[in-house]
Nucleic acid binder design. Structure first.
Lengths: 198, 198
DNA sequence: GCCAATATATACCATACAGTATATAGATTT
DNA sequence: AAATCTATATACTGTATGGTATATATTGGC
């Protein structure tokens, strides 16, 4: 159990993840990484095969943090509707949550990797799918327990919800104005109440 | 009137705009540009001060194309509601419109330039503001002519609408699935009918 | 069709890039 | 504590980068 290497591996990932997220894959150079970590190329290449492998690990680190948080939020007390509102509540201050990640990993990597990195792009699509699945599951359970009614399939509603949320994330990211998050989530809550009320 | 230079300047911008849009500012190298245009660095640097100035021109070219199209769409026959639906209709097949641009310039540049290029980022925010303004103006005219009622200010409603639209653009871009566009716009039309009906 | 002005191509710079081979330091085992 | 194994630092590749100085076409005015 080589604890030393595992620790530095983890340290590198944690330190480097926000950089990749903020600056993109190509926009982040190896010297950015050595500067940020205080380590040398030797250390980094000793722990990762190449820049792409590190970027992928960094993305997985970010997306797993987000997914874990969403799990946590969706595990809120109460019925399915309470869980859904716990989620919208989380996204209301999503900018705060993603601050030390360097922004929304889904949006940033999803757009950045699009034309530049197939692996990252695929990992991003996977993460997206997982989030939609988690939301859909809550809705499905709610339907089964007759806590709510949905006009479409749970997955479809989840996709619709998440699209609106991600729109708010995109707009507040691009304009650097958190009002987009706040106002859109407020409106989304109204919509959810209208649509899901039993 | 040096027609020659003006022509090549325009040619360079047109040829290069989709590349910058697809690959991002840093992700697009000067050799990408010489390859795509068939010109040499001498020709490019003879027409543009540097890479950044060219990228900015390319972005302006794309965003102006989009803004002109939006103007065109919002000039549709009929009352304000007809114009709004002409807009949602345009966005329903937005992926087709942006195909030869290399994707949505607002989203791509908005996210890419965020951490890498202040000028591009500012230009993008400006374009965003203009789009919102155009939509808001249509709504305002509709209110004045008593063609529709809005529960909030025209600008606020425009921002809300555009956030949902941009969410659909972001999701369909990241997943490469145009259903996000189609389904979200369909739902948005329902919402608009509900909210704006006089 | 010649000449001046302009526009493009060529050849070159310094620097930054991702990546590697090897040396040194640090930890682990006995 | 010695020896061994592992992890990090150093020094170095070759290549690509954005940018420039200068040479060569190409153009438009007369």
């Amino acid at each position: 159990m080589s604890t030393k290497a595992e620790k530095t591996t983890a340290f590198i990932i944690e330190t480097v993840a926000p950089l990749f997220n903020k600056q993109g894959y190509i926009g982040t150079s190896m010297s950015d990484l050595t500067d940020a970590t205080g380590l040398t190329k030797g250390a980094i290449y000793g722990n990762f095969e190449n820049k792409e492998a590190l970027a992928l690990s960094a993305y997985e680190y970010n997306s797993k943090r987000l997914l874990a948080k969403i799990d946590d939020v969706l595990a809120a007390e109460g019925n399915a509707l309470d869980k859904v509102f716990a989620l919208t509540d989380f996204y209301r201050s999503y900018d705060v949550f993603t601050q030390d990640m360097g922004g929304c990993p889904i949006l940033n990597t999803g757009v950045d990797a699009q034309g530049n990195n197939r692996l990252l792009s695929a990992a991003n699509r996977e993460a997206l799918k997982e989030i939609e699945g988690k939301i859909a599951l809550v809705l499905e359970n709610g339907v089964n327990k007759k806590e709510l009614k949905i006009p479409v399939t749970p997955l479809q509603f989840a996709k619709q919800m998440f699209t609106i949320i991600q729109g708010a994330v995109a707009m507040s990211t691009m304009t650097r104005d958190r009002k987009y998050l706040i106002n859109t989530i407020t409106y989304l809550d109204v919509l959810i109440k209208r649509e899901l009320k039993k």
